[in-house]
Amino acid sequence: MAIITISRGSYSKGKEVAEKVAERLHYDCISRDVILDTSDHFNIPEVKLIRAIHDAPTLLDRFGHDKRSYIAYFQSALTERVKRDNVVYHGLAGHLLLKGVPHVLKVRIISDFSERVKAEMEREGCHESDARKLILKDDQERRKWTRSLFGADPWDSSLYDLVVHIHKLTVEDAVDFISQAACRDAFKTTDASMKQMEDLALACRIKAELVDEFFDIYVSSDYGNVVVYAKDKDRSTQKLRNRVKTLGEKIRGIHHIEVHGGIPVPANAV
């Protein structure tokens, strides 16, 4: 089976599509639950976490590390949750946070701007011009957020396997071919892809554990052989080495762990 990520703008009917796909395929459907998991697990107020993963980093955020730490927590909670497979995730940046895993079907749902404005007007009971402003602001915030944290534009179609325009195509049509695509061989979970997912979850878990003390690190895992990449080879690298030694007892699945400083970071590192 597969993992399906559905990216969407506000009022794009993506949530509806996600819920119906999950129902059709008998998958779990998650979105906000991951945030709750994260805030419980890492003991962060939910409101703070929601703001961190929704609003684009401000100038002050760029000097602090909170936002990146929260993203690391969020990614850890998400990978931990979806590695059980058969999941539809609709929410922020699923396609980027689960990048590189073969059995992840990445979908984006888009809807006509005028339809979105109508939906906003109905829900908020506001004037058309206000609804337009709100949606444009929300879109801009999401694009800024993704660009600043991942260097990618969420509107870039090449980040997804399928982009479905809900206009001529209905929600039901979208559900039809997302379900069909998820059942194709390319997105079936294999032993190798499952292992890849477990490695990603392990790397994310280790990063989440270390990110508070060591902000500028990357982690990769290959069959439980973990490499932590530090930016420079300096005194903090030794401190990191000592800290990493304690992780074996706390986190299950680590076969071997090493720290490297000042070397190029591979693409699969988180």
């Binding site: 073969p102 888009i110 997804y160 396997d161 399928l162 325009h165 695509a181």
Partner: peptide, 15 residues
């Protein structure tokens, strides 16, 4: 490249 110009966008990365 604007996806809203199309009914459907398919990437051949995995499909």
């Amino acid at each position: 490249t604007d996806p809203s110009r199309y009914d459907l966008v398919i990437s051949l990365n995995q499909i």
